Simulated scan of single mutants.
Amino acid sequence: MFEWILVGLISGWLAGKILNGNGYGMMCDIGLGLLGGVIGGMIFEVLGVRAHNFVGSILMSTSGATALVIATRIIRDEI
């Protein structure tokens, strides 16, 4: 459970930095990171790719969180 929170924190923060924004705040970034991990896991599962270590989990979660942040920004007309 602690690893999920840590991965969510790191990937949410990275997604905010990748998209040149200040993010949505710490708790929302963690939430987006956790949801991004689920989304990234589903996307990479379809592609047949699995994360075998901590760094792979962060990369997978960050890509999902980035997609999720882009989707929320499109919905909120921020892009």
Rank of each mutant, 00 (worst) to 15 (best):
67 A>P: 05
76 R>P: 04
74 I>P: 04
19 L>H: 04
34 L>S: 05
53 N>V: 07
17 K>M: 12
30 I>S: 00
22 N>D: 14
62 T>Y: 02
24 Y>M: 13
23 G>N: 01
33 G>S: 05
13 W>K: 04
30 I>P: 01
57 S>K: 12
30 I>C: 01
53 N>K: 09
27 M>H: 11
29 D>T: 01
72 T>V: 12
28 C>D: 13
70 I>D: 07
12 G>W: 01
25 G>L: 06
28 C>F: 11
36 G>H: 02
16 G>Y: 01
7 V>L: 04
76 R>W: 08
70 I>L: 14
50 R>F: 09
8 G>F: 05
63 S>D: 00
75 I>E: 07
15 A>T: 01
22 N>L: 12
21 G>H: 06
44 F>E: 13
27 M>W: 08
5 I>L: 15
31 G>Q: 00
3 E>H: 06
10 I>Y: 05
70 I>K: 11
65 A>G: 03
68 L>M: 14
29 D>L: 01
69 V>M: 10
64 G>F: 12
74 I>R: 14
22 N>W: 07
67 A>G: 15
60 M>P: 02
44 F>N: 11
20 N>L: 10
5 I>K: 02
1 M>Q: 05
50 R>S: 13
6 L>E: 06
78 E>K: 15
73 R>E: 11
43 I>W: 04
15 A>C: 02
55 V>R: 14
56 G>D: 01
26 M>I: 14
19 L>M: 13
67 A>Y: 02
79 I>E: 09
9 L>D: 01
2 F>E: 12
71 A>Q: 02
15 A>E: 00
64 G>I: 12
50 R>H: 14
